[in-house]
Design a protein around this nucleic acid. Structure first.
Lengths: 164, 164
DNA sequence: GCTTCTCCTACCGCATTGGTAGGATTAAGC
DNA sequence: GCTTAATCCTACCAATGCGGTAGGAGAAGC
C-alpha cells in the first residue's frame, strides 16, 4: 500500500509555498527547478490543490501560486485527500456513496466482512496521523533542516532527484 | 493509497482457517469456493503466508492448510507484511537496506525532507492499527456476523464477489 | 494407480501512474 | 499594442504492476 507521487510532490509544493516569507506569488517554474520536479506534471498536481481551495493563483506575468490559508490551519488529511482523491486502504472503499462517504462493496450484499473491520481501523490510523500534522509543522521541520545545513533560497536550483 | 487484493484475500483466508474448529487441514478449493475467490490466485497468496510461517500445509489427498499458531498470537502487521512485502506509504520507502529497515531515498543525499517526516507518521499509524488487531479478533468478529445471519459451514459454496 | 491435493513457473490483458506535448488564455512591462 | 511570462487545459504515451489464467510436476490417501 502506497501513496503516489501526487501526494509527495503536492506536499512538497505546499511546503515550498509555506516557506515564502512575503505574500507575493511563486511561479511553478521556480518550485519545479528548486525541487527538481517536472514542471508540466506539477501543473496538473497544483490544479488539484487549487480545486480544493488550498492554494490561490494569479495568472499572467509575475503570477504564480500562494497559500490560500495560514499553514497552521492546513491539515494533511485534506491535502492528501485533495491530491489522491481518497484515503482508502482498500480499493472497494473508493466506490463512494453520493455524499462522499466510503462504502465497502461487501456491505451491499449484507455481508459485513471481517476484513472491512480491519481496513476501517487502518484507515482510521492513517487519517488520524494525517489530521494531526499541519502544514506549519512541515514548514518548520524543513526550516530546521535548512539551518542544520545551508539555507536554500528559492531560485538557486538544487535538483533533488535527478543528480546534476 | 491502497492495499492490493493480496492482503484482502490473504486475511480472508486466515480468518477462514481460524474459524475451523478442529485441527484437520482445509483445502484451498473449499476456501476458494466458500469465499468466491479464484483458486489459482489463492495458491500464490497462500504461498506467501506459508513462507512467513503463518500457515502449515500437508500435501496429497485430504491435505490442505491450517494455522501455524494460535489466532491470538497472530497480529495483522506481520500478516500484511507477509502478503504485501512491506507496509510503506511511499514508494521510496520500499528500497530497503540489508537489514530490512525502510529507507527513504532522499536520505541518501543528506536531505531529510519534510515529506519523509509525514510519511513516517502515516506509516506509524498504519502499523499501529495493524499490530493491535489480532487474527482472533477478526475470527470472533466474523463469527458474530454469522449468528446475526445464518451460519455458513465450509463446503456450502456461497460466492461473494461473482454473483451466482 | 487413481484421485486429490500442494506447489511452481510462465504468461497475459488491463488499468493506472508518471510524464510529455502543444496550445489557449491572462496580465505585466515596455 | 507587442512581447513575455505565467496559469490553464487536454490529449497523448510508455512503463509498470495488478489480478488472473494455464499447465503442469510432486506428494499422499484410498
Amino acid at each position: 500500500m502506497i501513496f503516489t507521487t501526487k501526494a509527495e510532490y503536492g506536499v512538497r509544493l505546499l511546503v515550498e509555498l509555506g516557506r515564502q516569507p512575503n505574500e507575493s506569488p511563486v511561479s511553478l517554474k521556480a518550485i519545479a527547478e528548486s525541487e527538481g520536479l517536472p514542471l508540466a506534471y506539477l501543473e496538473r498536481i497544483v490544479a488539484l490543490l487549487k480545486r480544493a481551495e488550498l492554494v490561490e493563483s494569479t495568472r499572467g506575468a509575475h503570477g504564480g501560486y500562494r497559500l490560500a490559508r495560514d499553514p497552521e490551519n492546513v491539515t494533511m488529511d485534506e491535502v492528501v485527500l485533495a491530491l489522491e482523491g481518497s484515503v482508502a486502504p482498500m480499493s472497494c472503499f473508493v466506490d463512494e456513496t453520493d455524499d462522499g462517504r466510503v462504502l465497502c462493496s461487501h456491505v451491499d450484499d449484507g455481508e459485513a466482512c471481517a476484513t472491512k473491520f480491519l481496513w476501517l481501523r487502518v484507515q482510521g490510523g492513517v487519517t488520524e496521523a494525517l489530521r494531526r500534522t499541519t502544514l506549519a509543522e512541515l514548514v518548520a521541520f524543513s526550516a530546521k533542516q535548512d539551518v542544520a545545513q545551508t539555507p536554500v533560497p528559492l531560485g538557486s536550483a538544487l535538483p533533488l532527484h535527478s543528480a546534476a
